[in-house]
Design a binder for these strands. Sequence first.
RNA 1: GCGAGCGUAGCCAAGUGGUUAAGGCAGAGGUUUGUGGUACCUCCAUCCCGCGGGUUCGAUCCCCGUCGUUCGCCCCA
Length: 431
Amino acid sequence: MSLIQVSRGTRDLLPEEIQYWQQIEAIAREVFSRATYQEIRTPIFEQTDLFERGMGEATDVVSKEMYTFQDRGDRSLTLRPEGTAGLVRSYVQHNLYAQGEIQRLWYVGPMFRYERPQAGRQRQFHQVGIEALGSADPRADAEVIAIAKDLLNAIGLENLRLEFNSIGDRQDRLQYREALVAFLTPYQNDLDPDSQERLTRNPLRILDTKDEKTQDILQNVPSIHDHLSPSSQKRFEQVQQLLTDLGIDYNINAKLVRGLDYYTHTVFEIQSDDLGAQATVCAGGRYDGLVKELGGPETPAVGWASGLERLVILMQQLQPPTAPTLDFYVVSRGDRAEAQALKVAQTLRQLRFSAELDLSGSAFGKQFKRADRKGAAACLVLGDAEAENLTVQLKWLASGEQRAIGQSELPSLADEIRQQIEASRALPRVD
RNA sequence: GCGAGCGUAGCCAAGUGGUUAAGGCAGAGGUUUGUGGUACCUCCAUCCCGCGGGUUCGAUCCCCGUCGUUCGCCCCA
């Protein structure tokens, strides 16, 4: 037997887990809309060029992690590895910049990277993110960070660290890059192999290596902060002040750089200790050059993305899954009764009760056993006698009390029954 | 792409180079053919221990490969 299973690095979200996803999505919607961010949905695949230009061809994501394919028209398409590039493409394509000085947008959806799966990392994974396009105001930086924190707190996560840094503008970074290479070149042969490779390709990335020997060498490395222009330095300080004013704790991390080329000035990560090796639950920063790079007008922007799988892992550590509540379990036996039971179940649902219909046709005893296991508040019972006179037995499972009511009485009794359901949930069961 | 561990029923899980591969949960049926939660009984891997190949008289157990998975590296959310 060769059963077809999910592809490597993808997985099914089964009902037991999905409640966490729905909870996060609901909270995100609420938090974002309160901050006047609007949802945007863009395609899951885009032209490959978009990501190459947007994220930088030398980045790992672009150079080795993209799901790229030719379609039947021989176009090179790529499953989006992140959300920002597509969102900015849409912003430019639809001239959203013409509609106002700032666009606040959010998105959620699947992203794809060809990587080796491990804890908190899938090939198809999901991100939720926000972007504020059109403002260079440091308050925009602080706002998006504050919203990230609001979201994570609303989900119930604590013990998170905000790592914060400025990597300046292009000029600052070019200068710093030279200084960095000048500093590291004498140690070239002592660096770990990856870092040696990066020395020519992307020296800033050496800073956040986990290799201990390389980190030792980096003890006295020149700081990016000494290479920020006065205006970059000022921005950096302003954002810090705003965060402090908001009561948001942060840790300035001069070695925090990010993997994508488009970042400028503010970069940050929010990390958790409870995730194994993949500590980052939310990351982002400012990207003042990206809109122009993708053919739009010079437009400053700032945003972040958060990995839903990682948020779900943390949530599952905090709250046990909750079973859905059930108002009614509809029990029936006999041809006429069974037919009426379906109608009764539909009536209950139209009256906005939850109701499960037992379809087994097994003995009443079995059906009650199931009702009990499902945690129903009450049963409606139909047998031959009830079918005959169009009644139904209403039985409360906690107390065992039972009375006959007419099937047509259900609508007029709905409010009373609803109150009793509330009450019965609060009561311990009677033996 | 690299390294290490793991792969026995729907789930958890014991086990052995050789007759019927423990146990638990879940599930089905029954004791209780119109009334539930406990208890008890029965059933639930008999081309079979991920798949393919090898060693062996004989492999679920040893070896190789492969796929999957877990954790880590790289990188990232």
